[in-house]
Amino acid sequence: MKDSDFFEINTPQIVAESVDGEVIVVDLANGYYFSLSGTAAFIWSRLAAARGSFSEIFEDLQSAYTGEDMKSGLRSFLSQLEAENLIRSAQAKAGLPPKVEKIFSDSRKPFSKPVIEKFTDMKEFLLVDPIHEVNMRGWPHRREDSRNLPPASAKDAENA
């Protein structure tokens, strides 16, 4: 990933909503959804405001956070987002760079590695049935043999 590489959110497949400073991202194509907080939410909000190059996003990150390994942390996080198809490479816009409102511009916070939490439980339920199937014991026991899916878990979260 070069400093001059541009990125943007992979719309319209990817939708996101921010609540209380955290962001939920849903991939409408495969049913996965993601939770982003802290620096991850900041970087996402920066991308939601406007496409940007790695160096531009890093510059904005530096204006809000302070600490070591910020550049490698950002590079690793953007690679994760790209691997999950949440963002994509973009063309640089001609003319002046977009004006981006800094979200946490009053005081810089300690930088922590951005983390994305991934949830796959909704995909399982979508695969089972547009409504939902249950096993022979009835509600609320899901069929475990439905399309050879593993037993349902309440939440299948993993750190991507």
Binding site: G31, Y33, F119
Partner: peptide
């Protein structure tokens, strides 16, 4: 609220073809 949105929104978004950002904003 975040947890509520996380449990409420995905199944609503994914069950209706053509649902998108506008719908997610309304759920938010």
């Amino acid at each position: 609220r975040l947890q509520a949105l996380r449990e409420l929104a995905p199944s609503s978004l994914l069950q209706f073809p053509g649902a998108g950002q506008e719908d997610f904003q309304r759920m938010g």
